[in-house]
Amino acid sequence: MSQIDRYAYTSRIRHLDPAQKTGLAALVIILCLILPRPAVGVGAVLWMGMLTVWWGGIPLPVVGRVLLAEFLFLLLAVVGVVLSFSWEPPPVGFWSLQLGPLWISTNQGSLALAGLLVSRAFGATAAMNFLALTTPFIDLVDLLRRLRVSPVLIDLMDVMYRFVFVLLDSMGRIATAQQSRLGYATRRAAWRSSGLLASRLFVDAYQRSQRMQTALASRGYYGDLRVLPLDYRHDGRVYLLTAAVVVSLLLAGSRA
């Protein structure tokens, strides 16, 4: 999480209006979902990968590694769609492999369906990568605030995001303290230390929340975490870029 966060903060388009970046990513995701052609997903991956690297300034190896991991995950997810397992021989028209009494089979329809599913999901994932790697979480929260999402939800997201890092920090310190006293020297000790760490973190989170409540009250908190909206750069060229991406994906989706 912190790595994604770091890339998002150092992205070249960090200060671009998150509404523009989210709009582009959302359109790509919608097109991937509604256009039933694998070329759309492939086109989306190419567009989004390119924009993340050349426009967003995220290193190519980073984007490549993220995409590869997601692609492998998606491949695993469609194994059930591609392959059929049966104790009886498959019907005519299926390619099959017999392993003892077990028949593993597939056919062209299953492969096409799996290809479509993978390409759709991969295209949508690439659009999400673009957003996640170029837009810090606080910008997305700020966008939700502008979109008039419930303040309670926004406040919760804000504080939870902050607490994730505070608790990760606590967890690191407690684990180090345990290690220094051989807390993870044996499997049995490791189990015990992990349990103690989890319970300690729970108490820590509770105590911190109490102290944060006090600190917020000292700055005039009365139930609403009001903060200033962030400043962003609004770039008219993004609309042209978005239009180019949308038109090319529509063309890829309509070609027979």
Partner: peptide, 16 residues
């Protein structure tokens, strides 16, 4: 850490 609740420095300072 008990006092800083917001994810952004500028937003946190603006709270009061």
């Amino acid at each position: 850490d008990d006092q800083l609740f917001s994810a952004s420095v500028a937003q946190d300072i603006s709270f009061g």
